[in-house]
């Protein structure tokens, strides 16, 4: 078993390459599975799952809103782990993993916010309320927007990867504290009456739970596919840049 790492040391130092190759091998499977499960989700949401008694149609937004919110945490978890591994190992793949996960994760935070607002309007009567979850999602959006801005605006002489890794780590560590503080902030005050109902949680009927879980799988697959595709593109762009530089040098010396 030549692919089996001989030691922990070797395991960690080859983990990025191994992960990358596994991702590439799984990419077509993940892509087709994503399309398939999403078709199933469409069927379940549009024809199968019964209407919720109180909310009616708007409740169906739940099946894309909750998975988006779930994905954003998964994505920023990937950013956090990859950033730590980058600072430790300093191999470019870890930086690419973090960069692409942040980009696609930011897309899903935006989706979670927008679908949340479109759900809030018919149910709460307003697009936006300073409810604990909405507020902390908005702050998360700002944190990772800042992370992407650091990447975009880093000075040419600065080490972008290192800088971004540090921001990714500190930002992620702040998330649970922000959650806690925003929750306290909202619960110590009397809640306005715009919140007619709570999010459906524990007492979810089986049909809704099945639809939600299928959607969770489908959206996770979409996220993973997009992430792999972006990682592959970034890696390929780096390799191309290397080859171009090499070729430039060869042509200059041939002249």
């Amino acid at each position: 078993m030549s692919w089996w790492p001989r030691s922990w040391r070797q395991f960690w130092s080859t983990l990025d390459g191994r992960t990358y190759h596994m991702m590439l091998a799984a990419r077509p499977w993940i892509g087709w599975l994503a399309v398939g499960t999403m078709a199933v989700v469409f069927a379940l949401v549009f024809w199968w799952v019964p209407l919720e008694a109180i909310q009616g149609y708007p409740q169906k937004i739940f099946y894309i809103h909750v998975p988006s919110a779930w994905i954003m945490y998964a994505a920023f978890g990937v950013v956090f782990a990859s950033s730590i591994l980058y600072l430790w190992k300093r191999t470019p793949l870890w930086d690419i993993f973090a960069r692409c996960a942040a980009e696609v994760g930011f897309l899903f935070v935006t989706l979670a916010l927008v679908t949340g607002m479109l759900w809030g309007k018919p149910i709460w009567g307003t697009y936006w309320t300073w409810d604990a979850r909405l507020t902390s999602t908005l702050i998360l959006w700002f944190i990772y927007g800042g992370y992407l801005l650091v990447r975009a605006l880093a000075r040419p002489d600065a080490d972008v990867a290192r800088l971004a890794a540090v921001v990714g780590i500190v930002g992620f560590l702040d998330v649970p504290i922000i959650h806690l503080s925003v929750l306290w902030w909202r619960t110590l005050h009397p809640e306005p009456v715009v919140m007619i109902i709570d999010d459906p949680g524990g007492g979810l009927p089986a049909s809704m739970l099945i639809t939600l879980l299928t959607s969770l799988v489908a959206v996770s697959l979409i996220f993973t596919w997009l992430w792999i595709q972006r990682v592959w593109q970034e890696r390929t762009a780096e390799n191309l840049a290397l080859l171009e530089a090499l070729l430039d040098r060869r042509e200059r010396s041939a002249r």
Partner: peptide, 10 residues
Amino acid sequence: PILLFPLSVP
């Protein structure tokens, strides 16, 4: 401020 304010919310 873009980096600092969101993280200072707590």
